[in-house]
Design a protein around this nucleic acid. Structure first.
Lengths: 110, 110
DNA sequence: ACCTACATGTAGACCATCTATATAAGCGAC
DNA sequence: GTCGCTTATATAGATGGTCTACATGTAGGT
């Protein structure tokens, strides 16, 4: 997968994996990898700045925890984050429909 | 449509509208706008550099023409361009499947 | 002691897209 | 006869999300 393709869609992905339960960054990476069948292997240099950006935007809230000696920063969706997720889902459907419409070869009889 | 969403997919769109017939830049803009139902309004500062990039990459070849007093640069797909288009279509299907898979809410019974 | 997995973070590079600006011909209206 | 709109192409510079590379530290197995 070429890296640029992800641009503008990563926020949606992160919000989506946080929809059901809060997770810390490393768990988000694992969830994305699993849900994508291994296609999404986010570098930490991509994920962590994105999480901070989403928190600054008010879509996430984070809290530190220590689990078996390791520090974790756990993120959860805010109400605004849930609204943003709904908007991202809708935007994705529209976007995909547009691309599909252009990529689909015109039917020979038209 | 937020601008970043297009990143990494524009090449595919341009190649696709050139699949059936050669077009000049302005006509490519119009074709994209029409095929997308008005969603894609590419700034010229996006399209023209992209066309030159695709020509440099060997996917397009251009030729100047003058039609009713106006100069046009008409682009056509090369053989490599057709192969690239096929690859882009395939990459888009894979990409869309990945995003769909992550965005789709997990079913409650799982 | 060493290696791997777990866990978070930053600095700087990259580069496709966007904004803004420039140029110029054709054409209808007034 | 010039005003405004459409047609038509082009470049310079800004933007900003993602990636590469690097840095730090704990836990646990061998």
């Amino acid at each position: 997968m070429k890296p640029d393709a992800l641009r503008g869609h990563l926020d949606a992905l992160i919000l989506a994996v946080l929809e059901q339960e809060p997770r810390h960054g490393y768990a988000i990476m694992e969830a994305l990898q699993e849900r994508s069948g291994g296609a999404l292997e986010l570098p930490t240099g991509t994920l962590y700045p994105a999480l901070r950006r989403l928190e600054r935007a008010g879509y996430l809230r984070s809290a530190w925890a220590t689990v078996s000696g390791r520090r974790r920063r756990t993120y959860r969706l805010t109400a605004a984050g849930r609204r943003a997720l709904a908007a991202e889902r809708s935007a994705w459907r529209d976007f995909a429909a547009v691309i599909d419409g252009v990529l689909r070869p015109a039917s020979p009889q038209t």
